[in-house]
Design a protein around this nucleic acid. Structure first.
Length: 754
DNA sequence: AGCTAAAATGTTTTT
DNA sequence: CATTTTAGCT
């Protein structure tokens, strides 16, 4: 393929970007401006001018994006690109470590623990340190702290000295957690990055044999510190480093993504060329209008403006539903309309929500209406019991030190090995880790015969089973191996002996797993470790491209990088989007706004926004307010949201927005499946509503210590102290909560005392 | 030891 | 409301 032909398919800025050589390049690519396209064509261009594919590496954020990118490059070059490395940070590191981790005294058949595994491990640690998990030491928090600590390491030559906690219990937990991982010859997600860096820092020569000359990073705004260090390590001074990103789409701050990485690129890599792409090739004008109106409320905002040549386009539609069922029905009806009369396919539609819990109601409505849908990114399949079981068998076969996996399956199916025996076994393992297939020898060394209540024979039987499978597993292809394990272990037999629908389904699932294994070995060769890596690191976003004819239901986070003709964003309410947890701090609030922005900019032709007047949360009805994001979109003259009361009554201007509300509420009957709203479409004036809200706010602008206040969700509370711009309120149900003075009025209503 | 039933606890997003 | 954990029972 000749280079000129490749360049002819790009606009001026894109062309400039991809032809830069021997200098660091940052492409600031607005939503829909061809971000991925730029990387794809850059790589194709490099190969077309004679660069060797194996000198090229690209990192994307999801496995799906990586696959897609590979496919597109292959089709441009007609397959002439074997050897280029395109993967996520995590799977890149996993591959690196499979080769090199021996340097750190791990075995290269290490297991990768996913978040669920890590969480269980933390729970174990809590138990053995005798800490109450419902105190401040909740497993989730601990895991979070550990992850944060790993993300703030700077010197990877002495990783252990670098990780410190103020709380000594957490420090202990951390050490125990790491110790257990090591005993199991296992790594968690962060460790994949940390260990890679540790090797590079301690054994610089390793880098030489793992070098890539041309490095590309997609979604640079979402890289965390560890990933940033990886980029630095592999890219050196940045010569031929090519990163693409958009600070307005940074939505992974909570996972340690550091927006500074992109903001400071020019400092990190001197002589960098920065190229902005602002022409949007995706959305209609009204959609872009709304997107711009929203995002300009952020303080971290470079002020670029997306524009499009596309003329016309439907207005953005807003529906204020009665409750979440009504909302779901609205979405369903509109989709039916789009499919029936506008010539769209179901798969041209996507419903985006902030929290997974929101999907259920929508699913119910779709089921009732007979709208086919796919829930994207739900853990579903791989978290089913039988699937986890078979994975643990495979893990143990690959990595016989994995005691964690062992515990799950040693008595699955029943082998008469109870908790007492397992406890004992674990004690031995934690003193001197051993591979299960050599247990017989260990037992002899330790003279375990005398132990009471220890099912020695049965454990030996089990260890022999694993040993037997291990002796042959490299000969089998993965499909056969799955079969063999299920048969030898008696797992299948015990499932078959119970003749319930449930067990039938389990067997069915195991068959599906087998075909996945076969498929994998056909495409990637017969490598169990690779297969297991893939299983831990993959997420089900793959469901997306594979099947047509289904409406896609996904979280806003999942939607990053995707596009659909018709987008529905549901639940635009204070507390949901923006989410409660992120409302009180400017940085997190702005991230919520970016999240909303990401959602809006996924739309090609039609954008629908919905909210509900009442919603069931935690089994309780709440009456939410409009999301401030909605109001920002509607009142276009607010300069900076966080300093201005967000329901401004002046300058109301529903630009690009068409509002629909149900006419009469009286007619609505809620009850089982009878719910049939019968929608009416009218233009509505929101000003009345704003006025009411604004008056409420005016009433309670000044707070004093001792005032009683009412909070939407936490009910009654009392102001206990006010200092500087902070305000502390005690709620009987919640304890002490902090508010920013400038914001407090939006959440608290003063109660007059009699 | 292993199961069932009741109680508690938790939902933000994911590699 | 829904899932997970625990207690209490056989």
């Amino acid at each position: 393929m000749n280079p000129d032909h490749i360049l002819s398919q790009l606009n001026q800025e894109q062309k400039i970007a991809i032809t830069q050589m021997n200098c660091p390049v940052l492409v600031l690519a607005g939503a829909g401006s061809g971000k991925t396209r730029v990387i794809v064509y850059r790589i194709a261009y490099l190969i077309s001018i004679g660069v060797n594919p194996w000198e090229i590496m690209a990192v994307t954020f999801t496995n799906k994006a990586a696959e897609e990118m590979k496919g597109r490059i292959e089709s441009i070059l007609q397959g002439n690109c074997i050897g280029m490395k395109i993967s996520t940070f995590h799977s890149f590191c996993a591959g690196f470590l499979r080769k090199e981790i021996g340097l750190l005294d791990y075995n290269n058949s290490f297991s990768i623990y996913d978040e669920t595994d890590s969480l269980s491990l933390v729970k174990e640690c809590l138990k053995s340190l005798d800490l109450d998990k419902r105190s401040i030491y909740s497993p989730e928090r601990i895991l979070d702290e550990i992850s944060n600590a790993k993300n703030s390491i700077c010197d990877f030559r002495n990783v252990n000295d670098e990780v410190g906690f103020e709380d000594e219990n957490i420090q202990k937990l951390y050490f125990l957690y790491q110790k257990k991982l090591r005993e199991n010859n296992a790594l968690d997600f962060d460790d994949l990055l940390v260990k890679t860096l540790e090797i590079i820092y301690r054994f610089p020569e390793v880098l030489e044999r793992n070098k890539y000359k041309f490095i590309h990073i997609d979604e640079y705004q979402d890289t965390n510190r560890l990933q940033y260090f990886l980029v630095k390590a592999f890219a050196g001074n940045g010569e031929n480093l090519f990163v693409v990103g958009d600070e307005d789409q940074s939505i992974y701050g909570w996972r340690g993504a550091d927006i500074r990485n992109i903001l400071q690129f020019e400092k990190d890599f001197p002589n960098a060329k920065v190229i902005s792409l602002e022409q949007n090739y995706r959305s209609t004008k009204p959609i872009l209008n709304v997107a711009n109106l929203l995002i300009r409320n952020n303080s971290i905002y470079r002020g670029k403006k997306l524009w499009t040549q596309r003329e016309g386009g439907e207005k953005v539609k807003f529906y204020n539903a009665i409750d979440e069922h009504d909302e779901a029905l609205f979405v369903g009806e509109e989709i039916e309309e789009l499919v029936r009369n506008k010539g769209y396919n179901y798969s041209d539609c996507a419903v985006l929500f902030r929290t997974r819990a929101q999907s259920r109601v929508i699913e119910e409505a779709f089921l009732e209406k007979g709208i086919p849908y796919k829930l994207i990114g739900a853990v579903g399949f791989y978290h089913r019991r039988e699937i986890k079981d078979i994975i643990c068998y495979l893990r143990l076969i690959s990595n016989p030190y994995d005691f964690f996996a062992l515990k799950r399956i040693i008595n699955q199916p029943r082998r008469g090995i109870g908790s007492k025996t397992i406890e004992h076994l674990e004690k031995i393992h934690s003193q001197r880790p051993f591979p299960i297939d050599e247990f017989e020898k260990v037992a002899k060394d330790l003279k375990l015969q005398n132990e009471k209540s220890f099912m020695l024979d049965k454990v030996i039987d089990f260890s022999l089973l694993i040993k037997q499978i291990r002796e042959k597993y490299t000969e089998f292809d993965l499909g056969k191996l799955v079969d063999y394990v299920l048969k030898k272990s008696g797992y299948l037999k015990s499932l078959k002996s119970v003749k319930t629908e449930e067990s039938e389904a389990r067997i069915e699932n195991l068959n599906e797993f087998k075909s996945k294994a076969i498929e994998f070995s056909r495409e990637n060769g017969n490598n169990l470790e690779e297969f297991l890596s893939r299983l831990s690191l993959i997420n089900d976003v793959d469901n997306l491209s594979s099947e047509k004819g289904f409406v896609n239901l996904l979280t806003l986070h999942c939607a990053k990088g995707l596009e659909f003709a018709n987008i529905f964003i549901v639940g635009l309410e204070e507390g949901l989007l923006p989410h409660w947890n992120n409302i009180y701090k400017l940085e997190t609030l702005e991230e919520e706004r970016r999240l909303c922005y990401v959602g809006i900019t996924r739309a090609i032709d039609n954008l629908f926004l919905t909210s509900a007047k009442r919603r069931l949360i935690f089994g309780k009805t709440v009456i939410p307010r409009f999301s401030r994001f909605l109001l920002e979109i509607m009142s276009s003259d607010i300069e900076n949201l966080t300093n201005v009361p967000y329901f401004n009554t002046d300058g109301f201007n529903a630009q690009g927005l068409e509002c629909k509300v149900r006419g009469k509420e009286g007619k609505v009957k809620r009850g089982g499946k009878e719910f049939q709203p019968g929608r009416e479409s009218v233009d509505v004036d929101f000003r009345e509503e704003y006025k009411n809200l604004a008056e409420k706010v005016k009433d309670c602008v000044c707070f004093n210590v001792g005032d009683m206040v009412l909070h939407k969700y936490w009910n009654e509370g009392q102001i206990v102290s006010i200092k500087d711009d902070e305000l502390f309120v005690a709620f009987p149900s919640q304890g002490l909560k902090r508010f920013e003075k400038s914001n407090a009025q939006h959440y608290l209503n003063k109660i007059e005392r009699k």
